[in-house]
Amino acid sequence: MEINIFLQNFADILDDTDAILIKQETVFRDLEEWDSLTALSLIAMADEEYSVKLTGDDIKSSTSLNDIFEIIKNKA
């Protein structure tokens, strides 16, 4: 599993955010576009791309995109 591909997948679920802002250390919750639907999209993307069931609490306990990446990696 590669972090760069994960970041690309995450950037793909967004519609109004410049992909340049999507980095390992990005605090996803601070993105202007982040809302409950983005969270659902992240869960759906983890399922579709990595066959991983990400939970609401997984997202809640994460700060950066790298945190999310690590959780997905551990569950994959």
Partner: peptide, 9 residues
């Protein structure tokens, strides 16, 4: 629903 939203939410 707690699969997709946190307990807090």
């Amino acid at each position: 629903a707690s699969d997709v939203v946190s307990q807090e939410e």
